[in-house]
Nucleic acid binder design. Structure first.
Ligand code: MN
Ligand code: MN
Ligand code: ZN
Ligand code: ZN
Lengths: 140, 140
DNA sequence: ATACAAATTTGTAATCATTACAATGCTATT
DNA sequence: AATAGCATTGTAATGATTACAAATTTGTAT
């Protein structure tokens, strides 16, 4: 299923999640900004459209979308959570110099060990950290 | 290199990290408690031996040990960090019911994609979440 | 041993992302 | 219009972590 605004709206309806203006704006923002934004970034941008917007609404909306598996929470940093509209399995690389978070493909299922055969796996995360090509080229 | 108290002491000396009583106690605790403890757990236990112990000392010590690559910080939970004396690559599985964190082997290097060939990878983390066999057996 | 400087610990206050909660506003149905 | 249920808003509370300065300990030179 493609990640389009219309498809996601259908998903919300299917899961009985109200299509409020704020929620749709958060979804729209995540579709257009695939840089794994923080709550702060989403809030600051949407506030321009919705002057009365509350940060609590961003938190509430993201929690609801995450519970419905429509967004994925990325806890690659110790402090601030980041959000990803792409819920398909993929790895995340955080550059320790510029802070950017890059996606990369990884076939994690191919090497889940026998040790976990009796576990029920609900969530898989692969987080790498280091330096991105741009920062490697520029720095010292 | 084996994870023994004496070996780790040598590592500290080699890296010019003072062998204070508090630091050695934290190391000793991590060697004996492989359950990926929190700062709170380490502090509460060591306070029995060192009545004047400060939680700040635990934070300072763990930061220094992590910077020296003698412990690994596990950020599998959104809130509290956990600490692992085993710095070799391995995966972590957190049971969402009982909260226990399990180690599992994973050969992550075997499937690092071509996409990352121009990145410098300093840190690799694999975090799974779900239900452990014990909780699967007991619960609903 | 004594004196001194550097390293380490300690306690307290600040930080800051996130959550709790109650009041307000909005929407749909009758 | 009245009602009920849902969603948003603003403010206060929470809690892990960090900042910081004072006190203590440690190592070293005399
Ligand atoms: Mn992503
Ligand atoms: Mn481990
Ligand atoms: Zn970079
Ligand atoms: Zn369990």
């Amino acid at each position: 299923m493609d990640i389009t605004f219309e498809n996601l709206k259908q998903e919300l309806k299917k899961k009985n999640i109200g299509l409020s203006y704020q929620r749709l704006k958060v979804l729209e923002y995540l579709i257009q900004n695939r840089c794994h934004p923080t709550v702060e970034q989403i809030f600051t941008e949407l506030q321009k459209d919705i002057p009365t917007l509350s940060k609590t609404t961003i938190y509430n909306t993201l929690r609801i979308l995450a519970e419905a598996d429509l967004v994925k929470v990325i806890n690659i940093e110790e402090k601030e959570a980041r959000y990803d509209i792409d819920t398909k399995d993929h790895g995340h690389f955080k550059c320790e110099s510029c802070g950017a978070i890059f996606d990369f493909p990884i076939d994690i299922d191919s090497l889940i060990p026998e040790d976990l055969s009796k576990f029920k796996i609900n969530d898989k995360n692969v987080y790498f950290k280091g330096l991105c090509p741009g920062c490697l080229y520029n720095n010292n």
